[in-house]
């Protein structure tokens, strides 16, 4: 059921005592996520929402098993938090933090490659499998269990699409936000591979945006997939050379326009929806019918 997480996934919250860390921990507990504790250096021994707080990931691992960690640490310390999770062999690291310097992320990526950890994000809303577990900050009420996999570079746009699907009676297997930074961990292709293998996922909605070529890079894999992929790419009205909110959303040296991506997808025969409601129409059309 779904990818990467399930109801048994034991989650550690790095930065649990901060405002957002604490608030989102409560939301995750409400959703049904198995939160086993949190980490904030210097706050070890305290509790947040009845969950134990440790000074380090290593100390947490001395008390409990951990399958995944979620990072709410401020941007200037977030890379360190990721390194700590990697060094402690955490399988899945979800980094919510926005604003991490890109040089830090290049170093993280080089380090990550030599480990067995998977990083989702940074600058992402996390991952949700309805009815099972949520790691991240997607609003609780919008999800509905079902068979559509959602993967997106955005936060609130993911909520909009998941909400639109749910309101139209279309449930999701898992919704994944890979993040809006120029250098991140898990890619579109990584998530598509998992959806392709997941028996609960019958079709995938891929939400892309301007900047870089991660959409184009996924075309070859999509063409080989047995499951239909419906895409939606935003930023048609974005001018070149300007960062559109996300650090990674920038048309730079003429590369990364929405139009290029849309044309590349259409040329490859991949469905491109022009709006969230059109995504619903495509999902409901045969042979995609849910």
């Amino acid at each position: 059921m779904g990818i990467l997480i399930n109801k048994d996934t034991r989650v550690l919250v790095q930065g649990i005592t901060g405002h957002e860390g604490s608030l989102q921990t409560e939301q995750m507990i409400d959703f049904g996520t198995n939160i086993v504790g949190g980490v904030t250096p210097g706050k070890g021994g305290s509790e947040v929402h009845k969950k134990p707080v440790f000074d380090s990931v290593k100390e947490a691992l001395g008390e409990t098993d951990v399958d995944a960690s979620v990072i709410f640490v401020p941007p200037q310390f977030a890379a360190d938090g990721i390194f700590e999770a990697i060094d402690n062999g955490i399988e899945l690291i979800v980094c919510i933090t926005e604003g991490i310097p890109v040089h830090d992320m290049m170093r993280v990526w080089a380090y990550l490659k030599t480990s067995s950890s998977r990083l989702l994000g940074p600058n992402c809303p996390g991952i949700t499998t309805p009815g099972a577990s949520k790691i991240g900050i997607m609003p609780n009420p919008i999800h509905r269990p079902g068979n559509i996999g959602v993967v997106s570079r955005s936060g609130t746009l993911t909520y909009e699409i998941v909400d639109t699907l749910s309101k139209n009676g279309i449930g999701q297997s898992t919704s994944v936000g890979i993040g809006g930074d120029p250098v991140n961990g898990t890619s579109f292709v990584d998530v598509l591979e998992l959806f392709e293998e997941d028996p609960e996922t019958h079709a995938v909605v891929l939400v892309g945006e301007i900047g870089g070529t991660v959409e184009e890079d996924s075309i070859e894999f999509i063409k080989q997939m047995s499951k239909p992929v419906i895409s939606y790419i935003v930023g048609v009205s974005a001018p070149p050379g300007k960062t559109m909110g996300h650090a990674g959303a920038i048309i730079s040296m003429g590369v990364g326009t929405a139009l290029e991506k849309i044309q590349a997808f259409e040329k490859a025969g991949i469905t491109v929806a022009k709006s969230p409601s059109e995504i619903v129409r495509h999902v409901k059309l045969p042979p995609y019918k849910v």
């Binding site: 570079r153 609130t156 746009l157 909520y159 809006g180 301007i210 935003v234 974005a238 559109m244 959303a249």
Partner: peptide, 21 residues
């Protein structure tokens, strides 16, 4: 708009219906 992706989507929708952001 709150959120970069939704903001881009909103601008695109305005354009789609014939307006200019």
């Amino acid at each position: 708009v709150n959120g970069a992706g939704l903001a881009m989507a909103t601008l695109d929708m305005v354009k789609y219906y014939g307006g200019t952001p």
